[in-house]
Simulated scan of single mutants.
Amino acid sequence: MKSINPDDFKVTDKIALSKIPTELKIDADDDEKEEKLDKVSSKLSSFQDVMYAHNRYSVLICLQGMDTSGKDSLIREVFKEFNARGVVVHSFKTPNSTELEHDYLWRHYLALPEKGKFAVFNRTHYENVLVTRVHPEYIMYENLPGIDNVSNITPEFWKNRFEQINNFEKHIVQNGTIVMKFFLNMSKEEQRKRLLHRLDNHVDNWKFSIGDLKERELWDNYMSCYEDAINNTSTNHAPWYIIPADDKEMARYIVAKIIWEEMQKLTDIKEPELDDKVKENMKLYREQLEKE
């Protein structure tokens, strides 16, 4: 299988989503992709154990994509080898009444990973410049000063939100959180097939929502908002990666491989050495335990 280079997917210049492929043509069957993923997932799990002992860094993985783009299954497969204590998944839905009494980033601060752990945001703080931009009437629930109606929401409002998000990510990175953001780039045709599968497969019927069809009608609007958000918030400290997602198995492997390759850059992460006093008395401690 072709080697995966994270730089091939990282956003470093302005992008146009319409020009980025949604499928990576590669000579590999699903079994080979799964085998590759299993190996990387196992290595990531071992790395997290060391990171936990090192206790200096945490990792935030942000996943965005249209409905059916494969976020849930990607989380399940990429992190399945992790110790349960080592990874926490947060799925951010419509803000509740308590969350709306705070600024829009408040609930995301609360969900940030502890040192030594991974956190996965399944839909993220970027919903605040995506779904609310497609549906600006949702902003009215935030009860913001100077925003009395939708007409008050100007381009400057969104520009300010991009700046706030960049500052949020810069702050947490400077305090030891590694941030990687992935957009699962799925074609509209592939979404159509997956929605039909939900209707045809009784096991997945429960996943289907009429709302999926309504949001699908706004596809072009969403793509425009995604493109703008990515172009304004892909930074050196918190980069975006655009993942071809029409092939779920390949998308999972690409994401896992990128995470692994990026984590290898943190050469200071090592298991802490034993205290000198413990080293000197290990024989004594062993004898004490053996005598019990």
Score class of each variant (00 low, 15 high):
F208S: 00
I210W: 13
Q174G: 14
R194N: 01
D200T: 12
N166M: 00
D148G: 08
D212N: 15
I172C: 08
D204L: 13
L213T: 13
Y141M: 13
E156V: 12
M186I: 11
L196S: 09
L196M: 14
W206P: 04
D148I: 00
F157S: 10
T154A: 07
R198S: 05
E190Q: 11
N166K: 01
H197R: 11
P145I: 02
R194V: 04
N167I: 05
M186W: 01
N205T: 03
M180N: 14
Y138W: 12
I210Q: 10
L218S: 13
T154H: 05
R192F: 07
E142S: 11
F162P: 12
V179Y: 10
F168D: 03
T154I: 06
Q164S: 06
N221L: 05
K214Y: 12
Y141P: 03
K193F: 12
P145L: 10
E189K: 13
N166G: 07
D204R: 03
D212I: 07
L184M: 05
E217I: 03
R194D: 00
S187H: 08
I165P: 00
E189F: 07
R198G: 02
P145V: 01
E215L: 00
K207A: 08
D220V: 05
G211D: 14
L144V: 00
D220T: 04
V173A: 15
R161F: 03
K193R: 11
L218T: 05
Q164L: 03
F162D: 09
M140W: 01
H202I: 03
I139T: 00
N167S: 14
P155M: 09
F183W: 10
P145C: 00
L218Y: 04
R216F: 14
E156T: 12
E190M: 05
Y141F: 08
K193W: 07
Q164M: 08
N205V: 05
V173P: 06
K214W: 08
E163V: 13
K170A: 08
D212F: 14
D148A: 09
S209V: 13
N167P: 01
N221Q: 11
E163G: 02
H197P: 01
E163K: 14
V173D: 04
M180R: 15
M180Y: 12
